[in-house]
Amino acid sequence: MPIAESDIKWIEAPKLGFLEQLYLPIVYDGLKTTIGHIFGKSKTESYPEQEPKLPPNYRGVHRLNRDEQDRVKCVACYMCATACPAHCIDIVAAPAPAGWTDREKYPETFVIDELRCIYCGMCEEACPVDAIELTTLYDLTGYSREQLVFDKEKLLGIFDATTKSGTDPVRSRSGALGPASETAKA
């Protein structure tokens, strides 16, 4: 369908008034803006020297939480691995060691491929005992792909590091296992 002549609406440039035709007041206005910005504060974040202030619910590198006895909180229920859309979590479950009265299983290995992960936070949502969490660590780097496949010790180490530096995620409820394990405790 060609556009009918009656459907075309020509928009006319707004007519300039006297002061606008003189140009100078407008240029003065513009100069006020630009020169004002010269003395304004820069909005640049000079990254390596200046760390960004991330919101506490930022989804960065994972961590595995510890309970109050410094044991891994995970009960190896596989819910995170199931929920993970990127299939980056690999857990090998084993019967809980003797003396771990609050659960039946614990993870023998717990591996997250940080390169496959899409940082969606679904593992965290799925976890019934708040064992896995996303921290505000954002500068994840490594020299090889293997280095970025994090195992249990590394993930627990991130817990130690973030807890020590006081950057707990806003969702964190460290300590006792979550409500899902209460029956086992009793």
């Binding site: 369908m1 060609p2 556009i3 009918a4 002549e5 075309i8 020509w10 928009i11 006319e12 440039a13 007519k15 300039l16 008034g17 006297f18 002061l19 606008e20 035709q21 003189l22």
Partner: peptide, 26 residues
């Protein structure tokens, strides 16, 4: 004075086509 002349004289709108648009039927 030049500003006044520019502000009050009739200026042809400069973004409309100079000749009539002939609609082409596809």
């Amino acid at each position: 004075a030049f500003g006044l002349v520019a502000a009050f004289k009739k200026i042809a709108p400069n973004n409309t086509p100079r000749r009539k648009v002939i609609p082409k039927m596809l």
